[in-house]
Amino acid sequence: MTETVLCIKKELLPESWVQQKSVVPLDLDLFIKKCSIAGFKFIDRPDAEKSTSYKQIIPYIILQTRDLKKTAVYNRQGSEQRLHDLWSIGIGGHINPVDREKENDSFEKILMSGMERELKEELYKRPEGELPSFIGVISENITDVGKVHLGAVFRILTDSPENFLPGQELFQFSWKKTKTLDRLNLELWSTLSLDLISAQLRI
């Protein structure tokens, strides 16, 4: 059975979100409002992967210690062959119809449901009280993956990194010093996310 994924027509998204490289600090309400106005649809993933006229919306969740000194990383070994052997700081994936309880569910409800499902799939255990907060949008039109995806970036700040237990997809999961991450061969979205965190700190 063909997977269907949540997409928004690229031309209906704010221009600043879909530049060659986009790093846009943003609050959740404005992100939800802009996406809701643009409208969304579920499209067969093979078609969405070929069409640069749509952006597939991906919750991308970063784990950091509260003092920001350490960031969780893992090595890409999953189903997306184009990202293999790159290091990532983002946990996440596609939003599917399973994330919509009712036909008329809002974009916000579907997005948050998809994000929570991804966290449950990727982490066997995590501290209950530490919740993801939205920090902004990343996008790029450089890599084949980036051309058809838009990242909705969330972050969990934790006081107890040892209480995160990774699932099998998070290969070589570990906590690294944030200031040394540039020594890793990071996927482009991870580099953009670090830029987003820096931009947010300057606001």
Rank of each mutant, 00 (worst) to 15 (best):
G92F: 00
P46A: 02
E169V: 09
E162W: 13
G167C: 05
K147G: 07
A152I: 09
Q168A: 04
G167T: 01
L170N: 00
L30K: 04
M115T: 13
K69S: 11
E3G: 00
A48N: 13
F173D: 06
K55E: 12
W87E: 08
E80H: 04
I110W: 15
E140K: 04
E108G: 09
S88A: 03
N104D: 03
A48Y: 07
T71R: 01
P127H: 10
I61V: 11
P161Y: 14
A72Y: 04
E187P: 06
S139D: 08
G93D: 04
V23E: 00
K33P: 01
F171V: 01
P97V: 01
T158G: 03
I57L: 15
A38C: 09
V153I: 13
W189V: 08
I138Q: 03
T65W: 01
P161W: 08
E116V: 05
V24Y: 01
S16F: 05
E3A: 06
V24A: 00
F164D: 09
E15N: 15
I32H: 04
D159M: 12
P14F: 12
V73Q: 00
E187H: 15
T158V: 14
I95H: 02
R76C: 10
D47Y: 11
L150Q: 14
Y54G: 11
Q168E: 13
L196E: 00
D159Q: 15
W87Y: 13
E169K: 07
K10V: 10
W87M: 10
R45F: 09
S106L: 03
E169D: 10
S51G: 06
R100S: 04
Q20S: 12
A72V: 05
Y124E: 13
G90C: 12
E15C: 00
E101N: 03
S106Y: 08
R155F: 00
G78T: 11
L194V: 09
D99S: 06
R45G: 01
N141V: 01
K50F: 05
K55P: 04
V23I: 12
E101I: 06
T52Q: 14
F31Y: 12
L86Y: 14
L111Q: 13
K125A: 10
C35I: 03
S36T: 10
S113Y: 11
F42Y: 09
Q200Y: 07
S198F: 07
D105R: 04
E128N: 11
N104P: 00
K21S: 00
P132W: 13
R66M: 06
G114C: 15
A48H: 09
H94S: 10
L165V: 12
L201H: 12
S88V: 03
V137A: 03
K41S: 10
I91D: 04
L111S: 14
I89W: 04
I197K: 02
L6K: 03
I61P: 05
P127Y: 08
P46I: 02
S174P: 03
K125W: 05
G136R: 05
E169G: 09
